[in-house]
Simulated assay, not measured.
Amino acid sequence: MSQIWIISDGKPGHFNQSLGLYQALARLKPDLVMHSLPPLKIRDGLQRTWPEAYQQALASGIPKLVIAAGHATHLTLIYLKWRLGCKTLVLMKPSLPWALFDLCLIPEHDQPPMSDRILPTLGALNPMRPGPKQPDSTLLLVGGPSRHSAWNEAEFFAQLQTLQRHTPGRLRVTSSRRTPDATSEKLAHWPNIEFYPAQQTPPGWLAKELAQTQTCWVTQDSVSMVYEALTAGCALGVLEVPQKQRNRLSQGLQKLADAGIITLFSHWTGAALPQPEQAFDEAGRCAQHILTRGWL
């Protein structure tokens, strides 16, 4: 029985990346045991003491691998490697030198350097899984303004109207925490859609919906949702939003479009989006890579 620790900074997006990798590893090696722990405080390291949660985890043995995402987890990974001798893995482009970690899973759009300690990925890992698809089912994931993207409500609703004209059945729409209140209010009264506000969806709702949805559209700002929908096996289209500047995230989406993996709205003919020709499973690919290294 091998142990994996996830060091979580409390941010759901970061934890989901780690969880997606752990679950992929567990599918290949079912005897894995996982503990989720918060980052150590500086005084814990200086005093060489273990908080209670760490004591409970250590009662089961020393972990063979510790994984994490988020800058706040870096020092804990380095300390655990020094004190316990375990392998460490970070799911991002680290803010500290990457040579301090045994492996870095870095999205290609972050332009990682070549190294045997770096494995480039297509987007961030996630725990989504495909399931049996409901024919003619379509889900639209609506984001909002972000650091890289602006928001033009008129353009969004114009694209929505076009999407409705070419969508069989009733279109389901859900928002996000970034969706402007005015857009959500308008969606709540928009004809011929089923609107599910993000604040009213229970935990696990999106994963369940994506698993059974045949076609998914995502607004361009919601890059993480693009990769989640791909992992769930959806045919994927992207509604375009104004970009504040040319950035690595939009370049990454363009690369997916050039490869025929996603369809940009401006290139859409109105026909049914092409179904995936092969599984999009970056977590599974990374898990297999880790096992070939003999760490578990």
Score class of each variant (00 low, 15 high):
I4T: 08
I4V: 13
D9Q: 05
G13P: 10
F15L: 15
G20H: 03
Q23H: 09
K29P: 00
M34Y: 11
H35I: 04
L37C: 07
P39H: 15
R43L: 13
G45T: 08
G45I: 11
L46W: 15
E52C: 06
A57S: 12
L58K: 10
G61P: 10
I67W: 08
L80F: 04
L80W: 01
K81V: 06
K87T: 10
K93I: 04
K93E: 13
P94V: 12
P94W: 15
P97H: 13
L100Y: 13
L105H: 00
I106W: 00
P107A: 07
H109K: 03
P112W: 01
R117M: 07
L119M: 12
A124K: 09
R129K: 14
K133I: 01
D136A: 08
G144Y: 04
S149N: 15
S149A: 14
N152E: 15
E155M: 12
F156R: 05
F157I: 12
Q159G: 04
L163C: 08
T167G: 00
R170P: 00
T174C: 12
S184M: 13
K186C: 05
K186M: 12
W190N: 01
P191S: 03
N192W: 07
I193C: 02
E194N: 09
Y196H: 15
Y196T: 08
Q199I: 09
T201K: 10
A207D: 13
K208D: 10
A211Q: 03
Q214Y: 00
Q220V: 02
D221F: 00
A229C: 07
A229V: 07
T231V: 03
A232P: 05
L236V: 09
N247Q: 05
R248K: 14
L249H: 14
G252A: 08
G252M: 06
K255Q: 15
D258I: 12
A259W: 10
T263F: 00
Q275V: 06
A283H: 04
A283F: 03
A287Y: 04
H289I: 06
L291V: 05
T292Y: 13
